[in-house]
């Protein structure tokens, strides 16, 4: 009985990998349950033995919003996008903090994920892409809870809801893919160069300042190439899109498309680089 089953079992080839390896994304589908379990583990473990538990997912963006509102909104007098009343500054900054923190968290976790899971890499076979993928996805739960706060804020400030909200779904996906794209590069590099994990906290912080979180994208000169250069940061497009979907002002323009393009390039190149490095992970990590 068992023999017949074995005869139908697929033949697996072992051979040295040379050159560029096909992405073989279908293997990810075969291992989808493992992606689920690893994501679930990350979520489950993150807030264990923390009194506030998942509350931290909400507190962090709320604290940021309070600080931004006091320092940038009041003291520095930064204005929201054209068409959004100044008193909405808290919601305006919170709406950007949500995708930004999703991006930062996903990027940070994905970058160190391979090294953190070294014991898995050296013991068991599965498509290595699963590790940064599930690390990045684990941030969605935080995002969800913080989003509930956003809904509360919108009700409080009487910001009307519109069908544009549905655009948030592809925008969230774009933020996650952007984090994954950069995360693939950094996680594979981190296996060889531990410098990466020293750099990542600084990187994500700097990334927030170059993204239109505390300020409006309007402050970037519309004349000349500045906006297009600014758009090379994919989070610029994501945040612009978020604010449009929530407030209806400042609809996405070319900036969003540049962002999509940048993410696509980074993601595809990241996937190939990752696959190329993958075969040495177990030996290097």
């Amino acid at each position: 009985m068992v023999t017949t089953r074995s005869e139908h079992a697929p033949l697996i080839y072992l051979r040295p990998a040379r050159g560029w390896i096909p992405l073989n994304l279908s293997a990810l589908w075969a291992y989808r349950e493992l992606i689920y379990f690893l994501t679930w583990r990350d979520i489950k473990v993150r807030y264990k033995q923390a009194v506030l538990g998942i509350g931290w997912a909400v507190l962090q963006p709320v604290f940021h919003m309070v600080i931004f509102t006091i320092i940038f909104g009041r003291l520095a007098g930064l204005k929201p996008d054209a068409g959004i009343p100044a008193n909405l500054y808290p919601v305006f900054s919170f709406a950007a903090l949500l995708p930004m923190q999703l991006f930062q968290g996903a990027l940070q976790r994905a970058s160190i994920s391979l090294v953190q899971n070294a014991n898995l890499l050296t013991k068991v076979y599965f498509p290595r892409l699963i590790i940064p993928l599930s690390a990045a996805a684990a941030g969605l739960v935080d995002f969800f809870f913080a989003f509930l706060v956003l809904v509360g804020l919108m009700l409080y400030y009487r910001v009307p809801f519109s069908w544009n909200l549905l655009w948030l779904l592809p925008l969230v996906l774009l933020a996650l893919l952007a984090a994954l794209a950069v995360g693939l590069w950094l996680s594979a590099l981190n296996v060889q160069y531990r410098d990466v994990q020293q750099m990542v906290p600084f990187l994500v912080q700097a990334w927030m300042y170059v993204s239109p979180v505390a300020y409006s994208i309007d402050v970037i000169p519309a004349q000349g190439p500045w906006r297009m250069i600014y758009a090379l940061n994919p989070m610029a497009g994501v945040i612009q899109g978020f604010r449009w979907a929530l407030f209806g002002a400042n609809p996405p323009d070319r900036i969003l498309w540049v962002s999509v393009g940048v993410v696509a390039v980074l993601l595809v190149s990241g996937l190939y680089y990752f696959r190329h490095m993958e075969r040495t992970f177990a030996d290097m990590v």
């Binding site: 697929p10 033949l11 697996i12 051979r15 040295p16 030996d283």
Partner: peptide
């Protein structure tokens, strides 16, 4: 480790059924 595909061989060839 090679047989369980944790790491790739540097040379040679192998087939595993199942």
């Amino acid at each position: 480790k090679i047989l369980s595909r944790v790491t790739d061989p540097t040379e040679g060839y192998g087939e595993i059924r199942g």
